[in-house]
C-alpha cells in the first residue's frame, strides 16, 4: 500500500461519485453519489496526512493531524448538508410529488 495507490483509489471513488451525481435522475441517488465524493475527499486528506510531511512537522508533531482535523470538519459539514439537503428533497417532493431532478426545472426562466 502506497500513497499513490491510496490517492488513485480515492480519485476513482470521486469520479464514480461525480458520474453518479451528474447522471442519475433520482435526487436521493444524487445525494448518495455526493456522499461518495465526500468520502473520497476525506480519504485523500487523511492519506496525505499520513504519508506526506507538513513543513511544521519538525517543530510541532501535532501538525501531522491536520488532515484528520479537516476530515472531521468535513464529516460535520456533510452531516449538516445531508440534514438540509434532505429537507429540500422533502420540500420538493411535497410540492411536485416527484423526486426526479430532470423535472425540477421550474427556475429555468
Amino acid at each position: 500500500m502506497t500513497l499513490q495507490a491510496m490517492l488513485i483509489v480515492a480519485a476513482i471513488l470521486f469520479c464514480i461519485g461525480l458520474y453518479g451525481a451528474l447522471a442519475r435522475r433520482n435526487v436521493i441517488a444524487v445525494f448518495m453519489s455526493i456522499e461518495i465524493m465526500f468520502n473520497s475527499v476525506n480519504l485523500t486528506l487523511v492519506a496525505l496526512g499520513r504519508y506526506v510531511a507538513p513543513h511544521a512537522l519538525a517543530a510541532d508533531i501535532e501538525s501531522a493531524l491536520t488532515g484528520q482535523v479537516f476530515a472531521v470538519f468535513i464529516i460535520a459539514v456533510a452531516a449538516a448538508e445531508v440534514a438540509l439537503g434532505l429537507g429540500i428533497v422533502f420540500a420538493l417532493y411535497r410540492n411536485t410529488e416527484s423526486v426526479d431532478l430532470t423535472e425540477a426545472a421550474q427556475m429555468r426562466r
Binding site: C15, I16, L18, Y19, A23, R24, R25, N26, T102
Partner: peptide
C-alpha cells in the same frame, strides 16, 4: 426501478473519466 439514469450519461462519464 427508482434509480434511473438521465440523458447525461455519456457527457458525465466522459467528464468523470477525464477528471480521473
Amino acid at each position: 426501478h427508482g434509480n434511473l439514469p438521465n440523458r447525461l450519461q455519456v457527457p458525465a462519464a466522459m467528464v468523470a473519466a477525464l477528471l480521473l
